[in-house]
Amino acid sequence: MILQTISAFFATFFFAVLFNISKKQLLFCGGIGAFGWFIYLLFVKLTGSVVLANFISALGISLISRIFSIIRKVPVTVFLISGIITLVPGAGMYRTMYAMLSQNFEETAFYGAQTLQVAGVIAITIIFTSSLPIGTKKR
């Protein structure tokens, strides 16, 4: 679990490089990514629900991105995009496709529905935290 969190830090860090985020913000982006993945793993372990874990983790990531963007005076997208990338259901997409390939339609429906749920949950948390009236200026 610790190893995965550390990996999440570096994965997000180098993802931020791919997005050409300036050097000053890179460490913060990595930190948000690691934090989000830690919360995710923790809640998967506690509750066993992938969708719930995604919800809480995405909530944490978008709140922290909002706070960092106010403190560091950069647009919230810089932190949000790089932080949320760990949660983007790439694995779900792949498993759905794989199940479809092996003509296992029960699994296809399962993973497909789960991927859609995760995507929906992430969207809702971003909507939720973006609508919160913290900080007078929009960033």
Partner: peptide, 14 residues
Amino acid sequence: MPLVPGVAITNAIR
């Protein structure tokens, strides 16, 4: 993961 459209998804929502 490097190909996943993270920016497009986040911006679509926002």
